[in-house]
């Protein structure tokens, strides 16, 4: 097992742990629970096999669902995002995504944050649609997407910065 895989394994477990025990219990303003485990979908290698990636993401979503007693909404949202990730990569990085490059090293910050935002928006859209699952709740869904997205973005950027430092060292 090389170093990259080890980092991914550790981040998988730690993100899962923090999400379940810390961020799922934050309840900012009473209803916002930021989702930072999506950082895993950002730091995972671009040029690795997607089949394995889909499986890992299914496992991640399923574990979150399992430990937070939330049906299957996290699984569906995470799985869909992982399946659509190549499209999101192409949209946020352009043609350079075809070249196998190490993610943290060379790309510009704006691309990374676009990618993160796209993943968060897509995930929240699917997640809250599945949770409410009713056209009449469209206002509630949009409000939740917007407010949760802001907090998830802020916290995810902080976590990503931590990755950057640990990678450099």
């Amino acid at each position: 097992m090389n170093r990259k895989s080890l980092i991914l394994l550790i981040s998988f477990i730690s993100l899962l742990f923090f999400q379940i025990f810390v961020f799922n219990n934050m309840n900012i303003f009473g209803f916002i629970n930021p989702m930072i485990y999506l950082v895993f979908l950002v730091v995972y290698d671009f040029d690795s096999d997607q089949t394995l990636f889909i499986l890992v993401c299914f496992l991640l979503g399923f574990s979150i669902d399992f430990f937070s007693q939330s049906g299957g909404a996290h699984t569906i949202a995470t799985l869909t995002v992982s399946f659509l990730r190549p499209i999101l990569i192409r949209n946020s990085y352009g043609v350079t995504s075809e070249v196998p490059i190490s993610f943290q090293a060379d790309t510009r910050k704006i691309n990374k944050y676009t990618f993160l935002s796209l993943i968060l928006i897509l995930h929240h859209l699917i997640y809250f649609s599945v949770v409410y699952f009713n056209w009449n709740a469209i206002y509630l869904i949009l409000r939740n997407i917007f407010s949760t997205f802001i907090f998830s973005l802020i916290l995810s950027v902080m976590v990503l910065n931590f990755y950057r430092k640990s990678d450099d060292s």
Binding site: I54, F58, G61, D65, G71, G72, T75, I76, L79, T80
Partner: peptide, 8 residues
């Protein structure tokens, strides 16, 4: 996997 999760 999607159908599995919808089933769950």
């Amino acid at each position: 996997l999607l159908s599995c999760s919808i089933l769950f």
